[in-house]
Design a protein around this nucleic acid. Structure first.
Length: 486
RNA sequence: GGCCCGUUGGUGAAGUGGCUUAACACUCCGGUCUUUCACGCCGGCAUUCAGGGGUUCGAAUCCCCUACGGGUCACCA
């Protein structure tokens, strides 16, 4: 009975890759890979009005960026193609005709306005809005009359009465619905294109999909789909409904919510590492067995099991994502991180359009210096400011340090040392300068470093001072000291 | 409103009847190391699992009710 695992991710090309969709894709991918199965991508483009130009390419591009790959799909082909629903219209038509012939589906001539009014009336009476079934038993003559009026028909599925549709959900367990809660639903729209609920079933069956792992918002679609499987005598796949991703207020992530970055593309632009995002998303509604939470894609691929999918909603915690990305940044090759930082430094005006080798080398040293403070490449900008902004406002603590009695003494001695320094301006050279000042003034530790840090940066905290001064360069260091000593 | 689903700390989250005087992680707060700043390291932060009943020798874990939160009721997917 252990048949092959075939799962799919079925996006609509209606926009950018959202974090929620990315998660659905990722878990299906993980499930397929962990089970040695097949991962399929199918484009659900039946809502032709909402399809956007380039939507499909964009979705696939960012899936790949994340590190997800697939075995069958619109761009790579496969034995069960085509993988775009609008290219499978003939197939759906045959199925529809079959249902009509067997009286399991019928034409509905109601207009949108009529249906709208019907729903309003039901709502006013406190009833659940549901299609009344008024075209259910039209005679041939009535049908002809309606068509003579110029009406076009949609096709509705005849929902069986008094039946229970139940399944054992991979994540939620037993779920059951009464068929009487559903009105006859449209399976083919007036434009001749099937609706979601019909097309998914047709395709999942045709593509031999064994498990359907999708968002919880699809739970109430499942009974409708089960009815269609039943109508054709097909065996339904195993269903699993993952909880939604919610924000810290426990509300479903809305695309309009500006407090959370929700599109994968934005994370790329902010300088997040795909492997960090992958890791983070994998922990959204799923947890591994042990105590570890940093995993490579390969590891996740090995340890993933769908039975550890959570039943309660996954709260998206941006702070934890930032921490995790920081962890990955520290593990990553500095050259790679530096490359990620360059565009941000350019945007801030800290690097020219075409930086030379020396500037790139400098950038890499900067990255190494501040790496432990970096949560994303975009964070490089505020950390780089200290090197480029002249006359920043002193922080209160820094101003306090500079008012201390011994500060001018230390600064004076440091300036002298800088001026008499010879040779290359390296970290070691800077360290030697501090030694000289210590000997000349007798100050050491905080008393020695703080005045210089405050004078040079206007702050009492920051990265390692020796390397900061080395990166600042001899000229800027001297100029800033001179300015302070006025 | 009907139908479905959920509810563990400041936060994420483990836990599927005794191993839990509830892991681990994030955040925050102490301490410590380093001639500066960080990193690191050590320690602290739920006598309690939404509330109330019940089952049981024993419940965060099973059952019921209440409250709260969410999802869904489209010719959108």
């Amino acid at each position: 009975m252990a048949s092959e695992v075939r799962v799919r991710y079925a996006p609509s090309p209606t926009g950018h890759l959202h974090i929620g969709n990315a998660r659905t894709a990722l878990f299906n991918y993980l499930f397929a890979r962990s089970a040695g199965g097949t991962f399929v991508i199918r484009i659900e483009d039946t809502d032709t009005k909402r399809n956007v130009e380039g939507g499909e390419e964009n979705q696939l591009k960012y899936l790949r960026w994340l590190g997800v790959d697939w075995d069958e799909g619109p761009d790579v082909g496969g034995p069960y193609g085509p993988y775009r629903q609008t290219e499978r219209l003939d197939y759906y038509r045959e199925l529809t005709e079959d249902l009509m012939r067997r009286g399991l589906a019928y034409k509905c001539y109601c207009t949108e306005e009529e249906l709208e009014r019907e729903r309003e009336e039901q709502a006013a009476r406190g009833e659940t809005p549901r299609y009344s079934g008024r075209c259910r038993n039209l005679t041939e003559a009535e049908r002809a009359a309606l068509e003579a009026e110029g009406r076009t028909a949609s096709i509705r599925f005849r929902v069986p009465e008094g039946k229970t549709y139940a399944w054992n959900d991979m994540v939620k367990g037993e779920i059951a619905f009464e068929s009487d809660g559903f009105g006859d639903f449209v399976i083919v729209k007036k434009d001749g294109i099937p609706t979601y609920n019909f097309a998914v079933v047709a395709d999942d069956h045709a593509m031999r999909i064994s498990h359907v792992l999708r968002g919880e918002d699809h739970i109430s679609n499942t009974p409708r789909q089960l009815m269609i499987y039943e109508a054709f005598g097909w065996e339904p796949p195993v269903f699993g409904h993952m909880t939604l991703i919610v924000n810290e207020q426990r509300k479903k992530l809305s695309k309009r919510d500006e407090t959370i970055v929700q599109f994968i593309e934005q994370y790329e632009k902010l300088g997040y590492l795909p492997e960090a995002l992958f890791n983070f998303i994998a922990l959204l509604g799923w947890s591994p067995e042990g105590e570890r939470e940093l995993f490579s894609r390969d590891e996740l691929t090995r340890i993933f099991t769908p039975d550890r999918l959570s039943k309660s909603p996954a709260v998206f915690d941006p702070q934890k994502l930032a921490w995790m990305n920081g962890e990955y940044i520290r593990m990553a090759d500095p050259d790679r991180v530096a490359a990620l930082c360059v565009p941000h430094l350019q945007a801030a005006g800290f690097l020219p359009e075409e930086p030379d080798a020396a500037q790139l080398e400098w950038t890499k040293r900067l990255v190494l210096l501040v790496r432990e403070k970096l949560h994303s490449a975009a964070d490089i900008v505020p950390l780089a400011e200290v090197f480029f902004r002249e006359d920043p406002e002193d922080e209160p603590e820094a101003a306090g340090v500079l008012r201390e009695e011994h500060a001018p003494v230390v600064l004076r001695a440091f300036l002298d040392a800088v001026r008499s320094a010879e040779g290359e301006w390296t970290v070691d050279a800077v360290k030697a300068l501090f030694k000289d000042v210590q000997q000349a003034t007798g100050f050491k530790g905080k008393q020695l470093f703080m005045p210089i840090r405050a004078a040079l940066t206007g702050q009492t905290h920051g990265s390692d001072l020796n390397e900061t001064i080395a990166l600042l360069g001899r000229e800027k260091t001297e100029a800033r000291l001179v300015k302070r000593l006025g």
